Amino acid sequence: MDLLMSLPIASYFFSSSLTSWSTSLNLLFFYMTWSTLVLSHSPLKIELIATTALRIVFWLVPSLFFLLVDTLLPSLSESIKHNGPRSLPPRDPVALSRLVGLALLNLALSTAAEAGLSSLIALATKRPVFHTATTLPLPWQIAKHLVLLFLLREVFTYLIHRHLLHNPSSPSPLPRRLTALHASHAHSHPGPHALLHNVDHPLPFLLHRFVPLYLPAAALSVLPLPFAVAGGGIHLLTYLLFIALATVESTLAMSGYTVVPGILMGGVTRRTAAHYACRGRGNYGCWGVMDWACGTSVGGSDVVGDVKREADKHRLGEKSEGAMRDGMEGLRRSMRVRSKRAE
């Protein structure tokens, strides 16, 4: 518990003093907290407790809140769900308790899997999986690694989801078995709700939700890559930020709500609902980039269409042209004033 309360991410983002302290003091406080944490706890302990805490805060708590709203106000929820009443969770207490129990079991399983893999990698390489030091990563390094991690997650999720979890006609028995397990657990519900993020048979769950997040980050940290793409390995803070952002994204995507904010998150949520509505015949990726490239988009929209639709909705082209015209007019006025002063 003392480690959880001392996590610098929590103290930085949820401190009430953010409105009064300057940015420099916040960064100093963050650095001091992180340094104390690194010097007083093992890297593996920080990694496991932090990732579990992030999943609890950004998936379990919102999912239970959405579950409460869906069960207490079903008429309101179905009116703002992509699949309508099909996206509502079961109201039977026994069925609902089974879903919650399976979700919590998979949450514990993902922590156990990360503990085992990180321990084995650290034992083999004689160092922690992720770069854990008092030195904080640079903003540009964080941004570069986050983009790379999200791109790799998209590729891994698409390949695993399409070829292992939705491949009933595969000549190999393993994909057929995984497909059956995934269909009987995750796709036993006609529409998504946030709790289903962790509801699946343990084996498909690890392949679908754990491997695309952990494996690319661990590989970039420990493998001798032929190019300096990882820049000396993934920092643990970068990995934790990646876990937090990915968890928030997938929780909102699985909620099934039509009122999800954001230019692209609305499209992600809509494609997730379409994936459940068509019983897994398309929309295998997270963002839809791989589905667009491979032609497996379903539901009448893809990521390119979502971007165009949002651009038209917010009239980004007209706003850009208006801003450019205003800027050019201001520049002309400034030049006329200068020419008059010169005369």
Rank of each mutant, 00 (worst) to 15 (best):
R91A: 12
V260N: 08
R209E: 12
H201S: 14
W59P: 01
M290G: 01
L203T: 09
F210M: 10
S17K: 15
S24W: 07
S119D: 08
A228W: 06
G116H: 08
D92I: 04
L223E: 14
R279C: 10
L146C: 01
I160D: 04
G267K: 02
A274S: 14
W140I: 00
L37E: 05
P43L: 06
I49G: 00
E78G: 00
E310V: 07
D302F: 05
T258R: 15
L264A: 10
W34C: 02
L223V: 10
S40Q: 14
T134G: 04
L28Q: 13
V268F: 11
F130K: 01
R209P: 00
F156A: 11
G317P: 02
L102D: 10
R162N: 02
V61G: 10
V57L: 15
S6K: 11
I9D: 07
F30G: 03
L123I: 03
L196R: 02
L60N: 04
Y214Q: 12
K340F: 11
R98P: 05
L316N: 09
H201M: 00
L245G: 05
K81T: 09
S20V: 13
P168K: 09
T258D: 04
Y257F: 15
S20Y: 06
L73E: 08
R271S: 11
D312M: 13
F242V: 00
I46P: 02
S77C: 15
N167P: 03
L331Y: 12
L105C: 10
L264M: 15
F66T: 10
T134V: 14
E343S: 14
N198V: 01
Y214E: 07
S16I: 06
S170N: 03
L181H: 05
T52E: 08
F227T: 14
V155E: 01
V222W: 01
L96P: 07
H41I: 05
T51D: 05
L27V: 03
